[in-house]
Nucleic acid binder design. Structure first.
Lengths: 262, 262
DNA sequence: TTCCAAAAGTTGTCCCAACAAATGGTCTCA
DNA sequence: TGAGACCATTTGTTGGGACAACTTTTGGAA
């Protein structure tokens, strides 16, 4: 490995891989601290640091006297809202974001643009109604606000739509992807947003420049035409620097703009 | 203090109080590990455990060679949605929640109901358009799903509305508060939702039974009539067990119901 | 067989020590 | 004056040890 990577992080990475890869499933017991101490030839202190890191990521749980197990994540859905809406104006998300940030006096930019072709995971396949393993076009970038990284955005398109609408380019699409799709008859008529939270993974933490102990907002928007899902956008927001606001109904004034602490 | 409370937690609690109380402000340097070791007469390891806990709460940041400082939290707003909606059906949030959970096959209940009269904080005052320090009626409870605590809900009403609508009772209001207000002419016509995330405070962690490393979703809904804000609802969701979903536009089918991991 | 006590196993707390790495300031020398 | 070397300070990493607290298993006694 990298000779500069601390031991406890290497151990944490190993265990994380085993959990991610399925060798260790939810509810399974991890090796005891003593066993890992033996196995890696390190002190118990170092093993405990590795455990602490995984605990902070919400992946494992230790119980005194019993051992350490892989956590299982069961989540229930709270259907917060449903609304009929029409007449959306600048449908392009990037433009809309830019405009709003500018209105708030912030400078928005994006970098590290990347286009990849990836197989559909079960979650992606379900939401885009394609088969698991089907090729999807991923277009991702890092969004910056006032020079600081603010969120990681990753959009997935079904391959046939991406080809038809010229989304296989390794750079930004002029006018935005939504407009390019609309020009070919794939018109957005609505979307479903899913919002949840978790601790960031190390690479996310690095890209977003997050301090230890900062969670992220995981935000998934599935966009639909009248016949099929057009796109899935996965956005990882730095939890300490972002807030999502939904206005529903016919509100006139009121809404404050500043932070909510307690 | 309690003789059973671990040293590192006592130290963490002391520092947390100093930050909360304002003796240590954002950007200030904390005492060095060596100083705290001296001051409390403990080992450096114990001080580091205390620091680790505060780091996981997102309150402080340590930098090698420089020291440890109190973090400052600046957040920007992302206006994710705007929509005109009408014909909402069961407007009462509690009932709506119950119904949805039942539809998903879960048993929803609530406990520890509490009614208090509290002065308006700056954030509450701004959103409810009252003066800071004005009396508000707080009605809070713990929501349970399948016997597990799922979220902490706390609703704030302007005093005059609460009096008029009989919300000063220390128990549940038959038919729901929204219906009671509507009966007196305070009809809900829309709301603004704000969603963000952070690490839980110790009391929240305890009430929700959260494991270490589990963040919470902070969800603020401000409800409006055609003339004024009626209510502000602050909900703390256990981040590992909840998800918010917003449907916007005219969608027919599609949307999946299961967890989103990556 | 049943129940209770003891033992073994495992994580939690706490101490001590040493060196590495990064930062910020000082001091010297060109 | 300016640049670079050096040093003190501070946190990061890693090792070692001891006992406490809690859970599970085991074994013996009734």
């Amino acid at each position: 490995m990298a000779q500069s990577e601390p031991l406890y992080r290497q151990i944490a990475a190993d265990l994380r891989e085993q959990i991610r890869g399925g060798q260790l499933k939810a509810g399974d017991r991890l090796p005891t601290e003593a066993e890992l101490r033996e196995q890696y030839g390190v002190s118990r202190n170092t093993v405990r640091l590795a455990f602490a890191q995984l605990q902070n990521e919400g992946m494992i749980t230790s119980t005194q006297g019993r051992g350490t197990i892989v956590r299982e994540q069961v989540i229930t859905t709270y259907h917060a809202s449903w609304a009929e809406s029409r007449d959306r104006m600048s449908s392009d998300q990037v433009d809309a974001f830019h405009a709003e940030q500018a209105a708030q006096g912030h400078k928005s930019a994006y970098r590290d643009f990347e286009m990849r072709i990836v197989p559909a995971s079960p979650e992606l396949a379900e939401r885009l109604t394609v088969d698991e393993g089907d090729s999807l076009v991923s277009r991702s970038f890092v969004r910056q606000v006032d020079g600081e990284p603010s969120s990681l955005q990753d959009s997935y398109y079904p391959m046939d739509i991406a080809q038809e609408c010229g989304l296989l380019t390794p750079h930004d699409v002029a006018g935005g992807a939504i407009r390019a799709m609309a020009a070919k008859g794939h018109v957005e008529i609505g979307y479903v947003d899913e919002v949840t939270t978790r601790m960031p993974r190390p690479d996310e933490s690095r890209k977003l420049g997050l301090g230890i102990g900062t969670p992220v907002l995981v935000y998934v928007r599935t966009t639909y035409s009248d016949t099929r899902p057009l796109r899935l956008t996965l956005t990882i927001f730095a939890g300490d620097r972002n807030r999502l606001v939904y206005e529903l109904g016919d509100i006139s004034g009121y809404h404050g703009q500043n932070g909510y602490a307690s």
